[in-house]
Design a protein around this nucleic acid. Structure first.
Lengths: 263, 263
DNA sequence: GCGAGCCTTCCACTCAGTGGAAGTCGCGTC
DNA sequence: GACGCGACTTCCACTGAGTGGAAGGCTCGC
């Protein structure tokens, strides 16, 4: 679940304000590991709050619908939170515009199709389509994965502002599998290739048995705002149809976002 | 946006607690109408809070990531809210399990594919796939539509506990188009037919020019927990392929949820 | 230059929020 | 079937976090 660098620190300081305590309660479901359901006591522990305080906070959340009490007495994130969350413009607009193209891509490949954006120093997965027989991968909508070991991540990093690249390469890069590239120099070269080629290829660097092709999505200002990819089981030779389809989807979405090449 | 009966009352009473004021701020983006971005002053008005209080609340939300300040100074719902929201078990589990089948359905029909659940007295849209050329409809993921005028809604209502049906039929039913059925008696008959047939057909009752076929999804206990539908442009004759595909998708999802017919 | 909107900051008052402690509930054990 | 345990709920006196009116900035456009 890659607990990234900058965003949300997890338990840490609940802070003196009511609001921060309210958030600590919600964060208990996210950090350190994402869980479905927690008892009141568990929430209190994870949030670092006294039980009675937690009790009141949880009560408020439940009243609003941000948390739900399950039959067994435990709590889980509530529908209201989902309802409000999916309204968030960034994710919603992008999804709405991109979905038809992702569908097309899925129809060609019948493999995982990913759409991700750069948030902080992570690839944040905005959408994921999968079929019945797709490879096992760990991405999930709303999840974060590292930039240097995923197809979409590499594309996003390649087109990020140079200070972001520097910052990312300055920190130690986890090696997930033998072929994960962790050398900053090699990565720099790789990013240059990705910019030149217009697509990124990735194989066996995050999940064993899976490879991907990813391409950048540009908005009306020509900025890279997202990346699409197809993730397939690793095969001896690359399927050129996938590359073409990913490129086409990326182009289609970019056009829908108002991008006009070169002018 | 059908502001339903029971859930979230919108502006109303902010209440004396900090939490309720915090929620009032978020609700400002939802009710009375969903909006993308608001100025601080607008939030204060919609939430019914003094400006300085709003200022502080908004500050807390921004610090956590639940709201984002845009370049023009206005605020919109923040990515963090989306990130947490998509983690909500109900929606997430259902989506994950159903998606592959929805994909199949989409591939057959190339029209809107909807997945909805019953929440309160509304159909809550959990997932929606659409292609490039699909009809214009007003459903959206996270949105609510009335039970008596949509395909999924009719299916959900038909299989709801009888007290829910009674409650729903007791209130006045809005007539959206000439062919919207609003008579409780006619609807009761219709619901019985839907239960008998196993699918619901709906035509020109919510949006002009669109029709749909919907089928129920059952969980391991045999309860109807959701409904799938395909929404197409209205045509003189019904396409039997759509009905078959919807039934098949519903069956597939039900099976994945652990439903075994009859035993 | 002036007014209108909109946002930010300040600060004395006070009531909402706090959390330790005591009470309740349900369950498995001896 | 009383006992203990863990998990939850309620209580309440204390107090500092939160409140909101007011004043100060900033930025337009006329």
């Amino acid at each position: 679940m890659a607990n990234a660098t900058q965003p949300h620190g997890g338990d840490a300081a609940p802070g003196p304000s009511v609001a921060s305590r309210m958030f600590a309660v919600i964060d208990a479901f996210t950090a350190p590991t994402a869980v479905r359901a927690l008892t009141l006591t568990a929430i209190a522990e994870r949030a670092g709050l006294p039980l009675s305080t937690t009790h009141r906070m949880v009560g408020e959340w439940v009243a609003w619908g941000g948390l739900t009490r399950l039959d067994d007495g435990r709590y889980s994130l509530g529908l209201r939170l989902w309802e409000v969350g999916v309204q968030t413009p960034t994710a919603r607009n992008l999804r709405t515009i991109a979905l038809p193209y992702l569908e097309d891509l899925y129809e060609v490949a019948h493999e995982h199709v990913h759409l991700a954006i750069l948030d902080g120093l992570d690839a944040l997965y905005v959408e994921k389509l999968s079929g019945h027989r797709a490879v096992r991968v760990i991405s999930r909508v709303g999840g974060r994965l590292p930039l240097h070991a995923t197809g979409v991540g590499l594309v996003l990093l390649a087109h990020a502002p140079s200070d972001v690249i520097d910052e990312y390469l300055a920190k130690p890069l986890p090696q997930f599998l033998p072929s994960t590239v962790t050398s900053p120099d090699v990565l720099r070269k790789r990013l240059a290739d990705i910019r030149a080629l217009g697509v990124a290829f990735m194989s066996e660097e995050m999940t064993a048995g899976s490879s991907s092709v990813a391409a950048p999505i540009l908005d009306r200002t020509g900025q890279v705002v997202a990346a699409v990819s197809v993730v397939t089981p690793t095969t001896p030779t690359r399927d050129p149809a996938h590359e073409a389809a990913v490129r086409q989807a990326a182009r289609g979405i970019s056009r829908s976002l108002g991008y006009r090449r070169a002018t």
